[in-house]
């Protein structure tokens, strides 16, 4: 087991030269970034840019081809179990144990996270009230809407109050009230200065509102990284929106006008 690097125990997430491939197709190519303590870090990219592949490698779902992942100094590849104990994860698709109820599912998660009954119950009660889940707490997950499943996953990720939250498109099916709660919750979550959040999205407005720094991925490669202010400074003029910066850096703006014009006749 690799020993933590000196000083790295405080860094929520350090990804170094990470490469992920599916067969011969490369999904992520030598990606490096760090989530600092007290930071919400956004991974931005178009569909297929490598956001979800990066996240899946971090949480142990995909074996990386190359590179290192450290969670608070723990090597997540060599010691996946220890890294997983420090992570709360929300996947992009809410595929859960359909035959369990939210209560049964959260009880299972609390068990494998070694939480005591008092702590687990208090936290579950608070989150269930915040997300208005009490009325569906004993319904089978198979009968829940996508948004409600997403709330169950969020509660499961937060239940052990992990020092690192890894959220893959966590707000996409939530109602406006829950989105507001999540934004508040994430801001407070990192306010202690010790925790970190990795957040993937392709909704620029959300990234603009929530993230302290963002990484822009394009076909598995890091195109730019920094706060919105830093990215604006690098632009042609200083008042670009994140969407404009994103489209320019990923060259997604090339031929955009022509594509829109082509649709006019339809």
């Amino acid at each position: 087991m690799a020993a933590p690097l000196p000083g790295s125990e405080r860094i929520p997430l350090a990804v170094e030269a990470l490469s992920v491939a599916y067969g011969e197709r490369s999904a992520v190519d030598h990606l490096s970034f760090t989530v600092r303590p007290g930071e919400i870090y956004g991974l931005l990219g178009a569909n297929g840019a490598g956001k979800s592949s990066t996240i899946k490698a971090i949480v142990g779902l995909v074996p990386p081809r190359e590179g290192h992942i450290r969670v608070f100094g723990v090597d997540a590849i060599a010691n996946g179990l220890a890294a997983k104990q420090r992570i709360g994860y929300v996947p992009e698709t809410s595929l859960l144990y359909e035959a369990l109820t939210p209560r049964e599912f959260l009880e299972f998660v609390a068990s494998v996270r070694h939480l005591d009954a008092g702590t687990a119950s208090t936290r579950a009660e608070s989150y269930a009230a915040a997300f208005r889940l009490e009325t569906e707490f004993d319904e089978p997950i198979a009968a829940l809407s996508n948004g409600t499943r997403q709330k169950v996953l969020l509660i499961a990720a937060l239940l052990h109050q992990p020092p690192l939250l890894v959220l893959d498109e966590p707000l996409h099916s939530l109602d406006p009230r829950s989105v507001r709660i999540m934004k508040e919750l994430l801001a407070r979550y990192v306010a202690t200065g010790a925790r970190g959040v990795l957040f993937s999205t392709h909704t620029m407005e959300i990234a603009e509102q929530l993230c302290h720094r963002v990484a822009i991925l394009d076909r598995g490669v890091l195109r730019a990284e920094g706060s919105l202010a830093v990215l604006r400074e690098r632009g042609a003029h200083g008042d670009e929106t994140l969407e404009e910066i994103f489209l320019r850096l990923t060259r997604e703006d090339e031929g955009l006008d022509a594509a829109v014009r082509a649709l006019e006749g339809l």
Partner: peptide
């Protein structure tokens, strides 16, 4: 149409965690 959830207030939100192996058995 898929199963529809009924909205009934839960008696309580208390959770009762177990050891990991027992949690697998219960699940």
């Amino acid at each position: 149409p898929p199963l529809a959830a009924r909205e009934v207030d839960a008696r309580s939100i208390a959770l009762f965690p177990q050891s990991a192996a027992r949690a697998v058995l219960t699940k």
